[in-house]
């Protein structure tokens, strides 16, 4: 196996401390955070400028649009893999999220290992 390449990662999370932790974890694994935003419109706007290899999306975000709106753009317009990092959501939200075909659902608390295995999956 070749050494896994360094990925460009996008983080969409409105809880700053959690996004800071996620950034640190990703960086410690040798990847690069290319965008770290707190809302769906900001994420969609950032996607005009950067092309991530993988995105971590929180579902419940500040503002009217949730993380699923970003997932749709990633899936349908750009074909970029993404992961929903979310706490418990209701069945209806979960169904909407599943319909966007994410790479995975990452349960909170987020731990380094699951981040690592997801990054490895994408980089190989």
């Amino acid at each position: 196996m070749t050494e896994s390449r360094s990925l460009n990662i996008m983080i969409v999370e409105d809880e700053r401390i959690i996004s800071m932790m996620l950034s640190r974890m990703v960086e410690r694994l040798g990847h690069h955070v290319c965008a770290c935003v707190t809302s769906a419109p900001a994420a969609i706007e950032a996607l005009d400028r950067v092309i991530p290899d993988l995105a971590f999306l929180d579902i419940n975000l500040e503002g009217e649009q949730d993380g699923i709106a970003v997932g749709i753009v990633l899936r349908e317009r750009l074909g970029i893999p993404f992961v929903y990092a979310t706490a418990y959501t209701d069945a209806e939200t979960k169904a909407r999220a599943t319909a966007t075909a994410p790479l995975a659902f990452l349960a909170k608390p987020i731990d380094l290992d699951s981040i690592k295995s997801l990054c490895d999956l994408v980089s190989n």
Binding site: E15, I17, I18, A87, K108
Partner: peptide, 20 residues
Amino acid sequence: HHRVKNNLQIVTSLLFLQAD
């Protein structure tokens, strides 16, 4: 309960950042 859980999560994130 949701809030409590989220807050505890933030606490654990803070501890992670501090350790890191």
